[in-house]
Amino acid sequence: MADNNPFPGENNTGHIWDDNLRELDNPPPRWWMIAFWASIIWVAGYGILYPMIPGLTGYTKGIMGWTQIGEYQEGVAEVEKVRGEFEAQLQGMTAKEILANEGLSSYTIASAKVLFGDNCAACHGSNGQGGPGFPVIADDDWLYGGAVETIEQTITNGRMGVMPAHAKLLSEGEVDKLAAAVMSGNPAAEPLYMEKACFACHGPDGRGMQALGSANLTDAVWRFNEADQQASVKQTIRHGVNDTSDPMSRAAVMPKFGDRLSANEIKKLAVYVYKLGGGQ
């Protein structure tokens, strides 16, 4: 072709179509070539520094010794280091002392959130708002007391209050009367309250006894909160709570966490629960 190239001197490859459409052999721009070689050097450098080529028995490790899991572990160690400082302080402190320190209690609340989600939220709701049959723990009404030590005990040992079933002991009319009295907020005014010994557990004024875990019948919060509250109260009077002799008795058990969680974790949870809104 070279001898009869119709476009001499313009550096074409000799490939010509349609008379004048031809392929030139111009070099790419210099910046392009620089980038081209730079990327090849980059790949080579990368291959030397980092893991790159898979083989039959393993892969090239790279001289930096970098691994993904290693980087992850470094990250975890970093977090642990930050947490470690707080955790070391928490170890020797009581829940009450933690509460007195704003910085530490903020840390505790932040870090106990996961514990609460894993262990408590299933019954008490993700923020202590309770659930059907399970008490609200974000309010200020406590069956056993809202001091942080008491909360700690409750978590460690669990709770199981008992109210005997009264279906066999009371007539329908008496149940109606007592339920109405409880609904009114002042059960002590009803003579049956004394006669049938309700006061023995719920106290002479109906305010409950925290040593027994008996409910306060005079406040605004219901332990078993249902749409038809009157029916709910009657049901509780008739069949009691945790009374094994009555199959219709309400089940209300707070399991014990002392053997599942460490004392330190329980302490943190107690602080968390206390700070949900109702600690006393």
Binding site: Q129, D139, D140, D219, G277
Partner: peptide, 18 residues
């Protein structure tokens, strides 16, 4: 404003927001 729960009923009948 805390959204869950939006409010909590207290024993004296008052409403608490967090």
């Amino acid at each position: 404003h805390s959204r869950q729960p939006l409010y909590v009923l207290q024993s004296d009948g008052s409403i608490q927001n967090k």
